[in-house]
Amino acid sequence: MTLMTIITKMAEGFEKTCAIFFLTLLFAIPLGMIIALLRGSKFKPFSGFAKVYISVLRGTPLMLQLIAVTYGPYYLFGISVSRNKLIPVVVAFAINYAAYFAEIYRSGIESMPVGQYEAAQVLGYSRAQTFFKIILPQVIRRILPSITNEIVTLVKDTSLAFTVSYQEMFTIGKQIANSQTSFVPFIVAGAFYYVFNVLVSFVMGRVEKRMSYYKI
């Protein structure tokens, strides 16, 4: 197999890698916010639930969660594993990353000076207005470097989908490597991830720069 065919075959899988990546972000970013808000709730059952959620999803391997979400329904309820594994893979990634995002949001929200809330309260802003207009934009600015960190990790973590044989780029690369007894596919995979992450870092750097028009 020529290098070109290896790259072409893996590039086909890269589409699926991107699907995992973007769909995970799409769901994990808002879900993490919901978990963070529950975590900060004064209503004990809410904050308790969020604490347990974060503790379990951060405390067990993502690989295990992938297997549990993909095959769990079959073992528990006898539901056959769906042909399209994208759904369970994205569910597992999203609930896992939401736990990490939730903790990042919490660190940002807790770092906000109480004076910002007080100024908003005195001016008559509602709680929702205070959160969305005053607090959240400043929190995003503060946590952006940590978020970039998570996103870069996610790019590489998509390779874990091979454990449930989802045909993304790394899974295909591994198959080629096995059948051809070649190390080349791994080098190609490394290049794919690295280029992707250079791009992610560039974009996030631009976003950070755009938001740094004020000092905290």
Partner: peptide
Amino acid sequence: HVFGLVFQNFNLFPHFSVLKNMMDAPVSV
């Protein structure tokens, strides 16, 4: 809206311009 309060450490909204700091509450509240 009957009273206003000026804080010791200002508590301006750092992500809003001066004009936006002033205008936002009258407009959105």
